[in-house]
Simulated scan of single mutants.
Amino acid sequence: MTLRIGTRGSALALAQTGHVADALTAATGEDVEIVTVTTQGDTSRESLSTIGGTGVFVNALRDALLDGACDLVVHSLKDLPTAPAEGFTIAAMPMREDPRDALCASDDRSLDDLPQGARIGTGSPRRIAQLKRIRPDLEVVDIRGNIDTRLRRIDDDLDAVVLAAAGLTRLGRLDAVTGLFDLDTWPTAPGQGALAIECLDDDESSIAGSIALLDHAPSRWQATAERAVLRRLEAGCSAPVGAAAWLDDEDLVLQAAVYSLDGTEMIHLESRAEGFSGDGHGRELLQAADALGVSLADELIEAGAADLAPLGGAA
C-alpha cells in the first residue's frame, strides 16, 4: 500500500511534509507518495485578510482529499481554521517545532539595536502590534512571499523581518536568525510550529490508525489550549491575538494576549491546569486543555479585550 500525502508546493510545505513522510514510513513500513496541491494562498500576492484568511491554504487540500487525489494532507496548524470541519479529522499532531517568533536583521542586530525608524517586514497584524508596542518608531511594512523571498529583502529595502522560528528550522535557515522572542512576553499565533495531519473521518481503512502513530500528546495539549482561545474569541487573521502554552511539570500553562492594532494597549493573562501526564492521548486531557483555553478567553473578554480588537466571540 502506498500512502499519498497532499501538501502545498512551497519549499516549507514540502520540507515539513517530507519529515512526515519519513516518519510514516519508519512507523508503518508503508511506501509514501507526496502529491502537490496548489492553493489560492500560494498564487495570490494580496494580504491574507483580503483573500479570506488562513483558510485559503486549507480548502484546496481538503478538496484533494474529497476527490481521492490523496489519502491524507499536512497543514501548518496555524493555517487551519479553529471551527470543526465536517467530514475531516486531525488524526495526528507530530512533535511541535519551536513555536517562537524570530527576528532576522541585517548586521546581526537585535530589535533594540535597529536604528530609529528602521523598516521591518511582517504580514501579521499580531506581530505589527507587538513590534509597535516595543518600538513605536519602527516602520512596519506588510510583506508576503515565501521565507527566502522575505529574507532577500533584508539589506534590499528592509532592515529586518520577523518570521516563525519553526519554518526557519525546517528549511535549515537558522543562520539568518539574530534574535528569538520569549513566549511569555511575545505569545505567537495559536498552534505556531505544530503540524496537523488530516484525513477523512469516514475512512474505513487503517489510514487514520497509521497516522495516529505520529501523534505527540504534549504538542496536541498545547495547541488545543491555544486554539481554544482563538475559537472562543472568534478572532480572525486580522485580529492581533497571541497565545502560548507549555508544560510545567504536570501543569499545562497557558498565556494569551490581545493587542490594539497600534500596539499601544494590551491585555495579557495567564492560567494553568493540573494533571497533564502519562501517555496523554485520551479525550479527557484534550477536553481539559480545550476548557483551559475557553476559560482564559472568557477572562480576556471580561477584561475588555473586545475594546482593543475585532472579536466576534465578545458580541
Rank of each mutant, 00 (worst) to 15 (best):
Q255A: 04
L183P: 03
G313Y: 03
M93V: 13
V32T: 11
L254I: 07
M95Y: 03
R109N: 01
D156Y: 14
T2A: 10
D175I: 15
H281A: 08
R62E: 02
W246Q: 08
T38F: 06
D142S: 12
T122W: 01
D298N: 05
G9P: 00
P218D: 07
V229N: 02
V140N: 07
A196G: 10
Q16C: 12
D279Q: 13
T28A: 04
V74K: 00
R109C: 09
A21W: 07
F57M: 12
G193S: 10
D112Y: 10
A105W: 06
A305L: 10
A11D: 13
D248M: 07
T36D: 00
A257H: 04
L308V: 05
R220I: 07
S10T: 15
G242H: 04
D112C: 03
A160Q: 07
L195A: 08
L285P: 13
T25S: 14
G179W: 06
A243K: 09
D175S: 14
L66R: 15
V229G: 05
E265Q: 15
V20P: 08
L214A: 03
T50M: 06
R144I: 10
A69H: 12
R170T: 08
G282H: 08
D251S: 09
H281L: 12
A176N: 06
D215S: 13
L61M: 11
T38S: 04
G18W: 11
E265S: 12
G121W: 13
E97S: 12
R4W: 03
C237L: 00
L3A: 04
A164F: 10
L114V: 08
R144Y: 10
F276H: 01
V35Q: 00
A306P: 10
G121D: 06
I134P: 00
G172K: 04
I154P: 01
V258N: 13
G193E: 11
L183Q: 09
P125E: 03
P99F: 05
R173F: 13
A239D: 01
L247K: 03
R126Y: 03
A105F: 06
D155S: 15
A69Y: 01
V141T: 12
A314P: 10
S210P: 01
A314L: 14
A256L: 11
Q16F: 14
G263R: 12
G275W: 03
T122G: 02
G312D: 14
I211L: 15
D101C: 07
M266N: 01
L61G: 01
G304Q: 13
R4Y: 08
